Structures are given as C-alpha cells and as structure tokens.
Simulated scan of single mutants.
Amino acid sequence: MKSKFADTRKSGQRFDGDYHREMFKADINQFLKIEHDSGKVKAFLKEDFSYYTKLYVRLLDASAQENEKYPAVYFNSLNELDSQYLLILSACSVNDPEEVSKIRVVAEQLDRMFSLQQLQGAYDSNEFAVKLFEISAEIRNKPVVQIPLVFEFHLLREIARKRATAVLTSFNYNLFRGMTIDRLNTRFTRFFFGRVELFLAEGMKLKMKHSLGSLVTLRGAKTGFHIEHILSRNTESLDAFGGDEERFEVERNRLGGVLLMKGKDNISSSNELYSGKLKSYANTLYWNETLRSDSYHSKLDFRDFAKKSGLEFKSMNKFGPDELEERQKLLFEVASLIWR
C-alpha cells in the first residue's frame, strides 16, 4: 500500500496501523474499486495481492542469502536497508515482465546511493528515509531504463545540499579524502571493507576467505572482525607526522589507514612498529595483503588482476603520510569501480 499510494513519508504513515481500513477510503478506493464489489475483491486477491506477496517473499529470501540474479538485495540487508522493499514493490507492476531487472537495478541503485552518501559525508538517516519516498513515487511502475536516472538525480542533489558545494559527479575525491572511521558507524565501515574484499576476490577469480556476511556481522572475540589502525601510537609513527599528535590522530583514522582483522585476541599491541604489523597481515584478507611485497612476487592471479583493472596497487615497507594518502586514493579508485 505504501509503495503504490504513499508519495511522502508522512502519507505512508496512514498504512502503519489499520491499513485494511485505509483501502476502503475514497482516495484509495477510486483506484482499487473494491468497496461493495465482490468481483473486484476477488480479482484484487488473485492478482495484486498474490503477485506482491510472492514478490515480497522472494525479496525476503534474497535478503537472507545472496541471490546471483540480484545480489544487491543481500548487500542492502547487511546495511539494514528495509526501504528496498518499498522501492522494488513500487517499481514493479503486477506480473511485471521486467521484474528481475527491476529488482536488480533498484537494489543496486539504493546500495550505491546509500554508500556514496556515507563515503562523502552526505548521509543523514532521517533525510534519507524522506528522500526514498520521493524516489518511490518517481519510479512507480516505470520502465527499468528510467530508474537509474531518478536515483542519480537525487544522489547528486543530496550531496550538493549536504556538503554545500557544486558537484558534477556522484563520487568526488575531495569529499572522500577526509573520510575517517569516526565519521562512519562501525557496521558500514565493516561493510565497506567487505565490499572491497569481495571486489578483489571476484577480480582475481578467487573465493572469499571469509563471507561478506561474516565480515559485516561477526563480532566475537575469536571469530569476529575488528577495525585496526595500521599506525600504532609510538615514536616512529608520531615522528612521521612531525610529532603533531592532533594531525596524527586524524590521519590514522582515515579509511586508508585502517584494516579489518579477525579475532580481538590477535590485535597488535598498541605500540607495535609497522614492520611488525606488516608480518601479521599475511594470510588475512586480500586487501590487507596488498601492503605486502609477496603479494606481487608470488601471486600471479593478483598481478593479472592489478594489470587488467588499471589500479595502482603497491606494497609498502614503511607507512607514513605519503603512503596513507596513496592508500586513500587507491580506496577511492576501488570504490569508484564498485559503485560506478
């Protein structure tokens, strides 16, 4: 009911309660025409009700386990974006011949819009929820080819509004450059690095060492994943930033300065030198291993992928401001390919 008759978040609230009563009110009944018409009621149950119920169940299944036809439905569920149900049901007409394509495209566009706003400091949960109702109204029963255009328009407008700057592209390094983990919630940070890991695995045609779901959701002391700073607090690290503690704290929190590591009992000591940490990155995640020189010498699948993708991967035997900036730029290029 929300997907077909709510154009704003406020108007959608009428269906949060006795939605079955709302169906018979004049403004809704003029479309459904089911009041005092048993034939129309039967047709509604056999067609609309049956179709959208089955579609909803398919989306529930795809949210619980990745479906190769539309994997982004699962990605959105990891970010707890239940709004995808509203958007997909809005886009699909009864017995829609473009159903599979619409599910895939709407889910991908929602994932893209959410992620790129997060990564550029342009996300607000309440404003995002309001905006999705507008998008729902604009993509309602529209052909699949029109859907990305609607999302792109609103994405660009929201980034420009939130960051108070003119934007020509949906992903801008100037806005991403200063992104740090303290500006993102932990779940999305883990999701971001999980998507980077998935991108590398698919590029090398290798199996993920740990599933995306595990990277995002597991938090146990031994089996879970935590966010670890590459730069520990020690004299070597501080000296690399001229002894400026404030700058050091800000810089080490940038996305290019952190990694996902498994097991809190394996967290490197707070003052360990980078050379020691580098050893611990072996046989962890593909993204972590790109810091190590042996990833380039012995792994042909990675070398082939790096050459084919054009991404400037580079091992780093030391880690300071210049290296951190290189990693931030590399993450930007990777994210640009993931959410292009």
Results as ranks from 00 to 15, higher is better:
Met1Tyr: 08
Ser11Trp: 06
His20Gly: 02
Lys25Asn: 04
Phe31Ala: 10
Phe31Asp: 08
Ile34Asp: 14
Ile34Pro: 06
Ile34Glu: 05
His36Ile: 02
His36Leu: 13
Asp37Lys: 07
Glu47Ala: 07
Asp48Ile: 08
Phe49Leu: 14
Tyr51Ile: 06
Thr53Trp: 02
Leu55Cys: 00
Arg58Leu: 11
Ala64Tyr: 09
Ala64Pro: 06
Glu66Gly: 03
Tyr70Lys: 07
Pro71Thr: 01
Val73Arg: 10
Tyr74Glu: 07
Leu81Phe: 03
Asp82His: 10
Ser83Ile: 14
Leu89Gln: 15
Glu98Gly: 03
Glu99Trp: 05
Ile103Leu: 12
Ile103Pro: 07
Ile103Ala: 01
Glu108Met: 13
Asp111Lys: 03
Met113Gln: 03
Phe114Gly: 05
Phe114Met: 04
Leu116Gln: 13
Ala122His: 00
Glu134Gln: 12
Lys142Gln: 15
Val144Pro: 02
Val144Ser: 08
Phe151Glu: 02
Leu155Thr: 01
Arg157Phe: 03
Ile159His: 00
Arg163Gly: 05
Ala164Val: 14
Ala166Asp: 10
Phe171Asn: 04
Tyr173Cys: 09
Asn174Thr: 11
Arg177Pro: 01
Asp182Tyr: 00
Asn185Cys: 05
Phe192Thr: 01
Glu197Trp: 07
Leu198Glu: 15
Ala201Glu: 07
Met204Ser: 08
Met208Leu: 15
Met208Val: 01
Leu212Val: 02
Gly213Glu: 10
Gly213Thr: 03
Ala221His: 09
Lys222Gln: 13
Lys222Gly: 12
Ile227Thr: 07
Glu228Asp: 05
Ser237Asp: 05
Asp239Arg: 06
Ala240Leu: 08
Asp244Ser: 10
Glu245Cys: 09
Glu246Arg: 09
Glu246Gly: 05
Val250Ala: 14
Arg252Ala: 11
Leu255Glu: 06
Leu259Pro: 02
Leu260Thr: 00
Asp265Met: 11
Leu273Pro: 15
Ser275Gly: 11
Ser275Ala: 12
Lys279Pro: 01
Ser280Ile: 14
Tyr281Trp: 14
Asn283Asp: 14
Asn288Gln: 03
Asn288His: 05
Glu289Asn: 00
Ser295Asn: 13
Ser298Ile: 13
Phe302Gln: 09
Asp304Asn: 14
Asp304Leu: 13
Leu311Lys: 03
Glu312Pro: 11
Lys314Val: 11
Asn317Ile: 07
Asn317Tyr: 10
Lys318Gln: 03
Gly320Val: 03
Gly320Leu: 00
Pro321Phe: 00
Leu330Trp: 05
Ser336Thr: 12
